[in-house]
Design a protein around this nucleic acid. Structure first.
Length: 297
RNA sequence: GCGCAGGUGACAGAGUGGUCAAUUGUAAUAGACUGUAAAUCUAUCGCCUUCGGGCUACGGAGGUUCGAAUCCUCCCCUGCGCA
């Protein structure tokens, strides 16, 4: 459809807002393929728990970046960007429109904006060592080794401090932020939902997934070798289901807490996307379709 | 009706004469984000403010004191025990 000038569409929005079905709709209308941008749906076996689209919902549209990783291994934004970049090139080469769709803002930034993530691999040994230190100690070391990074970092976030020191350990200092964005005109569409409505959607969707066997799915993951601790670290559905299956919480707490946490997560997603002025916020799929039509012309 | 225990900010729950608009947790609201990002972390959270401070507050009313959420008196309410 657009062989001469490849273009890219990005669909974002909070969880349960209907991103997946919008992406499928746009893909059908405009000869596209969907590239998921979700930090949990990349894992094999993470289906109901991650809200992954089903084969049926895909409705014949090719989806990428699902089931590309083993949950037993660490998968990161860096891996995502590398794989996703290749996928998009390939879609474009075949004359189709890539539609990036997902709720993980950091992954989208890494992929679409080409955030250059410092080439320093996670160093488990160093991390373990540094985890013993207090924030103040970590910050002090960072200040000595790289005052530049120290001036911009969140001095109270141990995870960030440790990563910065890890980068310094490998590269000498933390490089300035660089971006190599994908070289295509890009349309950003955001799905906007009123908070009350989103809450209802989240509740209904959770109910449905439990009915469809979400608990059994996660039980199976554990039986397949994923520790409870590891499952808990994936957050939300995985964390709370793991707690439930271990009898650490009861069913009532499970539903109540999980619903609340999912809604909190959706707020964080909105916080992430809100400042991005490139995003066109829509409330109906027809608006999105119209935007896409004009954009692709 | 008598005895005992207690009434604190949205809730739970500290505080027992000054450093208390009041520890802490939860909830709420906003925000950050350089290889864990569904993660991790931050701020605000009585009212007003020219950000110096001002005002109203710990069931109610009085009182003691330079000073009270904290002590005293009476009243109201709640829980437990005995009638």
């Amino acid at each position: 459809m657009n062989e001469l000038t490849p273009k890219l569409i990005v669909v974002v929005g909070p969880t349960a807002s209907g991103k997946s079905s919008l992406a499928v709709l746009l893909a059908k209308k405009f000869n596209g393929e969907v590239v998921s941008a979700d930090s949990r749906q990349v894992y094999r076996g993470f289906n109901l728990g991650s809200g992954k689209v089903t084969k049926k919902e895909m409705d014949g549209i090719t989806h990428h970046m699902l089931d590309v990783a083993d949950p037993k291994r660490t998968f990161t934004a860096s891996h995502y960007a590398r794989l996703g970049g290749k996928v998009i090139k390939d879609i474009v080469r075949r004359g189709k429109t890539p539609i990036v769709c997902g709720g993980t803002g950091f992954y989208i930034r890494a992929l679409v904006d080409g955030l250059v993530i410092p080439d320093a691999k996670p160093n488990a040994k160093l991390r373990k060592e540094l985890e013993k230190k207090t924030n103040d100690e970590l910050f002090k070391i960072l200040k000595e080794k790289d005052p530049g990074r120290a001036s911009t970092i969140d001095s109270k976030n141990p995870r960030r401090l440790i990563r910065a020191l890890e980068i310094i350990d490998a590269l000498g200092r933390v490089p300035e932020i660089k971006k190599n964005p994908l070289p295509y005109p890009t349309l950003f569409i955001g799905i906007s939902k009123k908070q009350e409505l989103l809450k209802n959607l989240v509740i209904k969707r959770l109910e449905k997934r439990i009915q469809l066997g979400m608990l059994a799915e996660i039980k199976k993951l554990h039986a397949g070798g994923l520790s409870w601790k590891k499952l808990e670290s994936f957050g939300l559905e995985y964390r709370y289901t793991a707690l439930l299956l271990q009898n650490k919480i009861n069913k009532e707490t499970f539903i109540h807490e999980l619903t609340k946490q999912i809604l909190d997560y959706s707020k964080r997603q909105i916080t992430w996307f809100k400042p991005d002025i490139r995003i066109h916020w829509v409330t109906k799929s027809a608006e999105a379709e119209k935007l896409a039509r004009v954009f692709l012309k």
